[in-house]
Amino acid sequence: MSEESDLWALMTGFAAISLLSVGGGIAVLPEMHRLVVEQQGWMDSLGFAKRFALAQAAPGPNIMVVGLIGWEVAGLIGMFAAMLAMCGPTTLLAYGFFRLRASLGTALWLRVIERGMVPIAIGLIAASGVLLATGAAAGAGSTVATVLAAAITLGSTVFVWRTRRSPLWVLAAGAVLGASLLG
């Protein structure tokens, strides 16, 4: 019973979120955090941040974290249910809209609207970063560890912001620093 209602909440929750995920998956991360950590209590903030980081190690569109959340809730079925809920509705939309092409893509009014919306998406992506950073720092056992986690986040922010190198470098550096200093 509980398993089934969890699965139901997983699918309806992610399907709703998917329809709001205009402009990429990371902007809806705060909403996922609300659903998964705050409303359903499926995991804590650190677990959420860790799973997001782990999903970054998988190739594919950057919504793969949804699969790991589904796995935690209901195993393999949960993983497929969550991915289907996240991708199904938007896939159907894309299928229906495929004819709308050039005329729409280059329309001036659309660009003006986009210019008004993109800053919101960027703000939401930044909010995702803040929530993930809070989650990653929260799990640290001591004050020193919290400061260290925050320092890793800060260093990684500057690296990704200021250089054109692959972000995989910061993940590797974070792993090495975490393993050697946070333990």
């Binding site: 991360l29 970063g129 922010t157 200021r162």
Partner: peptide, 19 residues
């Protein structure tokens, strides 16, 4: 701790991308 280090770095990656 290893996972936590990666999580902290991934958080920075997201913020850096936004910037």
């Amino acid at each position: 701790p290893f996972m936590q280090g990666v999580a902290a770095a991934a958080a920075g990656m997201v913020m850096g991308t936004a910037l």
